[in-house]
Write a protein that binds this DNA or RNA. Structure first.
Lengths: 338, 338
DNA sequence: TTGTATGCGTTATCAC
DNA sequence: GTGATAACGCATACAA
C-alpha cells in the first residue's frame, strides 16, 4: 500500500504543470510532441495511476452502476446469476464499476445511492406491474432501466421476456401434440396479488391460449419449492385427472411436478408432458431434460447494462423497450398425448 | 436529478460554518445543543445527503470491496451466486459497496483497482495452489481474502471447505454401506494441472481414503459438463465393471453420471451409489436427490466479506484461516452395496 | 503550446 | 464551542 503517486508528482518530475499532464492523460489537443513524450516517460517512471475517485468527484459522476435484486424476497434461483454476469461484463467493458445489492432497499437508501453520488444508475429486477421503486426513481428523475416491465412503461427503458407469448407458444406446442387438458402451475398467490410481472403475464397468456384453442383453463398456483409443487400437482391431478400436460415457471416447480407425476406411476413424456420456463443450464440438469422456453438471462443482463450506460452517456437518449421473442427448445419432457 | 445539496448549503441555512456541520454529521463532541438542533433542522429542511465520494476522497478510502470471479473460465454454476449474495449482504450491513468482477483481470487492471482508489480490498475466488493474483497482491501489500486457499498461506486470510476431509467422509460413508470399488470422477485435467484447489485437494483426500480403507484408487477426470461426465462414466464402467459407487465434484458431472449409470440398466441407489459435492438447492433438484457434501456457499461469502472488512478496519488485524468441516447430507443416491 | 487559479464536497488542523 | 483554511487528486476556464 505504497503512497499514492499523484498527477502532481508526474508534473514535477516532467517539469510541467499539472494541467499539461491532465491534457495528456485525457488526449486533449495542443501538446507538443516533446512535452508529451517527457510526461509519458514520467508517468511510466513513477508508475502513475489516475485517482478514479478524484476524477469522478471533479466530473460529478461515479462511473458505476448497480443492480438491485431483492434476493431474499423470492428465493434464489440461477436466473439472476446470469443476469449479473451479463451486466457485469458489459459494465467492465465500458469502464463502469458494477455494484450488486441483494437486499431490499428502503426508499431513502435507494435515493441516497444517487444523491450521495455512489452510483449513476441502477438496473431494477423483479419488477411488478405497479412498482414503487419505479415511481420513486421516475419522480426524482434518476436514471434506471428494468429487467421486466410495468403496466405503464411510458418513457421507461426495459428488457423483458415476452411471457404472454411464451405461454401461447407452450400451449401451442402441447396442443399440436394432441393435449387437450393442459394445466398451468404458476407461482405463489402472494406474487400474483403483488402484481409480479412474470406471474401476471403468464397468467394472461395462458388464458388467451385456452380461449384460442378452446381449452378449459386449469390454473393452479404454489410457492416455488419442490415440495409445494409436488403437493399442488397431486391436488391438480386429483381434481382433474384428465390433465395430460402442464406448464410451469420455475425449476423447483418443474421438479416437484415431475416427481408428483412419476409418483402416480405415470412416465414423462409417455403419459404426461411438461414445459418449463427455465434457463437452459437447469433445464438440462433436470430429469428428464426439460422442454423449455429458454430464458436468455445472460443476454438480458447485457442489454440492460448497455441501455443504462447509453442512457448515462448520451444526451439525447430515447427510451428503449425490448420484449424478447420466446424460443421453445424441445427436449425430453414433452411428447404426443396418449 | 436535482442539484446536489452540499454541506455548504446546510451551513448557510443554519447560520454556522461547515466545520460545525461536519462535526454534527460525524458525531463529534463540542457542539452546543442549540446549534446542533438548528443544524439538524437545516439538514432535514434541505433534505441533505452527504456526498460519499467527497467523503471517501478526503478519507483516502473507497468504502467498497469487490469479488473477483472469473466466470467465463470455468463455466457458470450456482455456487458462486450464493457466495455473492452472502458477501453482498455483509457488505451492505457494514456500509460497504459491493463490486462484482466476472472477467479475468490483467495484473495491471487488478492493481489499478486499488491504486485508483476504486476499491479497498477484494475477495479472490477460484484459488489455485500457486496463484499469481495472490502473489501479486501480497507483494504490493494490498488487502484481500480468499475463498479457497493456496499451498502456502502464511499471513493470508481465507475461508474454504475442507475438501480433503470431504472425500474421506464420502468414501467412509460408501465404505460403511459395503462398497469396495469406489471411483472418483474429478474435474478436467487442465484444472488439475493448473493446481485448482478443489481438484487437487479432493484428489489427495481420495488417495488417503483409498489407502486407509485398502481400496484401489479409480481416479478419472472430465470437463464438468453432462456430456463429458456421461462419456467418462461409461469409460469407467467399461474398464472397471466392479465399480459400485462414485463421488464427484460438480452438479453437471453428477447428472452425467446418473444418466450413464441408468443407461446401463442400473438403478440408483439400488445398484449404484453416488455422492456429489454440491449446494443443497441443486442436490435436491437432481433425480434422484443427491446424497451430498453440502457446500455452504452463502455462509462462506458472508465470512469472506466479514474477514475482509475487519482487515480493512482493524489496525491490528490478525490473519484468519477457516477450513469448514464438511457435512454429509444423505438423500436418495446412496444405498447398501449389492 | 503551456500554466495559474478555482472548484468538486468533504474532513482535519489549528486557531480564536 | 466555533470557524477559517488547507488538504484529498483531478479537471477546466481563463490567461499568458
Amino acid at each position: 500500500m505504497s503512497k499514492t503517486v499523484t498527477i502532481n508528482d508526474v508534473a514535477r518530475t516532467a517539469g510541467v504543470s499539472i494541467t499539461t499532464v491532465s491534457r495528456i492523460l485525457n488526449n486533449k489537443p495542443d501538446v507538443s510532441p516533446e512535452t508529451r513524450k517527457r510526461v509519458l516517460e514520467a508517468i511510466v517512471q513513477l508508475d502513475y495511476t489516475p485517482h478514479a475517485q478524484a476524477k469522478n468527484l471533479a466530473a460529478g459522476k461515479s462511473r458505476s452502476i448497480a443492480v438491485l435484486y431483492p434476493a431474499h424476497s423470492n428465493g434464489l434461483s440461477e436466473l439472476e446469476f446470469e443476469f449479473f454476469v451479463g451486466a457485469s461484463t458489459i459494465a467492465a467493458k465500458r469502464g463502469f464499476l458494477f455494484n450488486l445489492f441483494v437486499n431490499t432497499l428502503s426508499e431513502h437508501t435507494l435515493l441516497n445511492l444517487y444523491r450521495s453520488n455512489q452510483i449513476d444508475g441502477v438496473i431494477l429486477m423483479e419488477i411488478h406491474l405497479q412498482d414503487e421503486r419505479v415511481h420513486l426513481l421516475q419522480e426524482n428523475d434518476y436514471p434506471f432501466v428494468m429487467i421486466g416491465h410495468c403496466a405503464d412503461n411510458e418513457g421507461l427503458s426495459y428488457i423483458d421476456l415476452d411471457f404472454e407469448t411464451s405461454m401461447l407458444v407452450s400451449v401451442d406446442h402441447l396442443y399440436k401434440l394432441g393435449h387437450r387438458h393442459i394445466g398451468l402451475l404458476s407461482m405463489s398467490k402472494a406474487l400474483r396479488d403483488a402484481g409480479y410481472g412474470p406471474v401476471v403475464r403468464t397468467g394472461r397468456g395462458y388464458a388467451q391460449a385456452c380461449a384460442r384453442f378452446g381449452l378449459t383453463p386449469l390454473y393452479y398456483e404454489a410457492p416455488t419449492t419442490i415440495e409445494d409443487a409436488y403437493a399442488a400437482t397431486h391436488r391438480m391431478l386429483d381434481e382433474h385427472p384428465e390433465i395430460t400436460a402442464m406448464v410451469t415457471l420455475h425449476p423447483d416447480s418443474s421438479v416437484g411436478i415431475v416427481r408428483a407425476v412419476q409418483s402416480r406411476g405415470l412416465s414423462i413424456p409417455q403419459d404426461f408432458s411438461l414445459i418449463g420456463i427455465v434457463i437452459d443450464r437447469i433445464a438440462k440438469l433436470i430429469s428428464p431434460p426439460l422442454t423449455a422456453i429458454t430464458f436468455p438471462a445472460y443476454l438480458m443482463g447485457e442489454r440492460a447494462a448497455q441501455m443504462l450506460i447509453r442512457m448515462l452517456q448520451e444526451s439525447e437518449y430515447e427510451p428503449e423497450q425490448e420484449l424478447l421473442t420466446p424460443h421453445l427448445i424441445i427436449r425430453d419432457s414433452t411428447g404426443p398425448a396418449r
